[in-house]
Amino acid sequence: MVGRRKTLEIEKRFVFSYGIYIVFAVLVIVYAISSHAFLSLSNIRDIFMNSSDLLIYVAGLTFVVLTGNIDVSFGSTAFASVAIGIVLLVNHGVSPVLAILVTIAFGMVVGAVNGVLVAYVGIDPLVTTLGMLFFLRGLALNIIKGSQIELPNSVAGVTTASFAGVPLIVMVAVVILVVLQLLLRKTQFGRHVIAVGCDRRGAQQVGIRVRRITFITFVLSGTCAGVGGILAVINIGSVQSAMGQNALFAGVAALVVGGTSLFGGLGSVLPGALVGSLLLSATQNGLSVLGVSPYVYPFVEGLVIIVAMYMDGLKNLRIRGSRSDEVISTQSFATKTLEKE
């Protein structure tokens, strides 16, 4: 009886830890069987190219969420940043390099404002970044005046630039992902991010500067939004008024599918953000390769996010479950913590 429960437990652990890969594999197999085009080199390239901006958003967002906060403004931040950049580039004759720097700097400033409001002023992160989401969308629409602005011919070459068959934007995305993963895993800052997410008060008590860590995560997220926006513009070739509208849905879904817990403390850039973003991107790409009506997309994507949330919940249950085992074995750990408070 006990032995059986144990095997079941191990099976469950396996499914929850690798569930995402199983879902991914099943999806790929189904698509590949349905259409030969899906696994073609050019289509795989498309999947990566179309997810390059999402990868960056999610990687930045991961840091915010790991501390137990949330940033929902990244889509609008990306939109507003590139709107400013492209107007400078097209209408004011600013050099491409400077336009890129201004774009990234704007994202950084937005992140800093979010960070100050959340970490130092103490406004709820959801409220802060939701306000920022609307504010920046309004700002961006005013900047581009609702029109579509194409990348000028002088820099259009960048959209197709590639090295050894790997598109430039995919390379940039991968490099940034690797850097952020190293930041998370190998540095004191990364460890402190996780510590804050595990136990905010505990972190404060050991002397971690919780506010500063929180602030920096928002700056990172804002900066990533700016960079991601640039990759999106290079991929699409223009800035138009719908930009970044679906980013919130896709970003949070990819984050959660990638195994990052919205409660903080648990998650990763690699493989988390990468796998989550690719799965979401592949889901959509497959539907389009199969020629499914676009009206079906949201339906399938919605299903994916629900399954993802369900798995996130199960994972937390699992952690809580293993803790409650401890309670029994080491004499009521949880209650004592409660009593202490």
């Binding site: 996780i194 510590a195 595990c198 136990d199 505990g202 972190a203 403390g265 750990f333 004592k336 202490k340």
Partner: peptide, 10 residues
């Protein structure tokens, strides 16, 4: 401490 507060995911 009586109940050392370690960070569970570290």
């Amino acid at each position: 401490h009586q109940e050392p507060a370690l960070f569970s995911m570290l």
